[in-house]
Simulated assay, not measured.
Amino acid sequence: MAKPRGWLEWNAEQARNWIRVPGPADDKYTRGVLGMRTGSKDYPGAAVLGAEAAARTGVGMVRYLGPGRASDLVLQRRPEVVTVAGRVQAWLLGSGINADTRGETVTRALDAALAEGLPTVVDAGALDRVAGGSDSPRPIVITPHYRELAALVNGRNGTTKTVTAGQIAADPGEWATRAARNLGVTVLLKGSVTRIATPSGVRLTVSNATAWLATAGSGDVLGGILGALLATNAGRIEADPDALAALAATAALVHARAAGIASAGGPLAALDVAEAVPAVIRALLAVPTERKH
């Protein structure tokens, strides 16, 4: 995709082009399989929210690989989810995992998924696994908030420089751009305005999300939406690495619009946002009246 000079606000017309509609020859595998290593003993709900959002975004299959209690809760909510290992087209890693308390087995599993080189969403408790950066861009989208990005930047700089969440909040565009370049990944920096930056210089924004979206679990839902979009568009990502930016912006736009439906001007819960995703996608795919002829 073309690289804008400044920040480009993503819109519904652009997002529509990144929603893959299945055809008569598709099956659950060709539609995309999303692998998930999310959730933990302390935060099993993150796995439920991510799986729910991914399923409602239109992925062909979700493979959830996580702790027993989280698996049970996922299956109670979404019995079609597969809980055994197998081929996937993309990964969602880290939601609901605490990097400070995860065990070696979980860390090895996260690293093994990253080593596959597939399109991957890296969230929360897996962010430290990309902190070393890379000499070449990787097919990874990280989804930090300000505090998480500060921790990543400080980890990259060692003890020579300390960046605070407040500094990132004061200039999120600069820090998202810098992190994308230094880490070799696409950055989706969450905030009142979502900013997406790539190592190659693509810079996108998604604005106008309801402030009610600042609630526990909303980031887990975003991860599921984005993971599903990566899985369904894995071929496009292979052909054009900057497709990650478009897909990240599309996920943020779907997330924001689903929150608007769920809120209707009042409070919402994260699961409400996931449940509203199909309505948003239907609206994005609908042909405007003036274009039907």
Rank of each mutant, 00 (worst) to 15 (best):
A2R: 12
P4C: 09
P4S: 04
W7K: 02
W7T: 09
W10V: 02
N11P: 01
N11A: 13
Q14I: 00
R16M: 02
P22D: 01
A25L: 12
T30C: 01
T30V: 03
T30N: 04
M36N: 03
G39D: 08
K41Q: 11
Y43R: 09
L49W: 06
R56H: 08
T57D: 01
G58V: 06
V59L: 04
G60E: 01
G60D: 03
L65E: 03
G66N: 12
S71E: 05
D72Q: 14
L73R: 12
L73Y: 05
V74K: 09
Q76S: 13
R77A: 13
R77I: 00
P79C: 04
E80T: 12
V81R: 02
V82Q: 10
A85L: 12
R87L: 11
Q89N: 15
A90Q: 03
A90M: 05
A90F: 03
L92W: 06
L93R: 07
L93Q: 06
I97F: 12
N98F: 00
D100K: 15
E104T: 10
T105V: 06
D111A: 14
A113I: 07
L114A: 04
A115Q: 11
G117Q: 08
V121D: 04
V121H: 02
D123R: 09
D123A: 03
A124Q: 01
G125C: 11
G125W: 12
A126L: 10
A126D: 03
L127C: 09
R129W: 00
V130N: 02
A131P: 05
A131Y: 02
S134E: 10
S136E: 10
P137Y: 02
P139E: 01
I140M: 05
V141W: 04
R147H: 10
E148L: 05
E148K: 04
L149F: 04
A150S: 13
A150P: 07
G158D: 12
G158C: 13
K161S: 08
A165E: 14
A169R: 15
A180R: 03
A180S: 12
R181M: 07
N182V: 07
L183F: 14
G184K: 08
G184Q: 06
V185E: 02
V185F: 01
T186G: 02
T186H: 09
A197L: 13
S200H: 14
R203D: 03
L204A: 04
T205Q: 11
T210D: 11
T215H: 05
T215F: 04
A216R: 14
G219F: 13
V221P: 10
V221W: 05
G223L: 11
I225C: 09
L226A: 08
A228P: 12
L229T: 06
N233K: 07
N233F: 03
G235P: 08
I237S: 01
E238N: 08
E238R: 15
D242C: 00
A248G: 13
A249D: 11
T250M: 06
T250Y: 13
A251L: 10
A251N: 08
A252K: 13
A252H: 08
V254S: 00
V254E: 00
A258L: 01
A259G: 15
G265Q: 09
G266S: 15
L268R: 03
A269R: 15
A270Q: 08
L271Q: 15
V273R: 10
A274Q: 14
A276N: 14
A276E: 14
V277A: 06
P278C: 07
P278G: 07
A279K: 12
A279P: 00
V280P: 10
I281W: 00
A283M: 11
V287D: 05
E290P: 02
H293D: 14
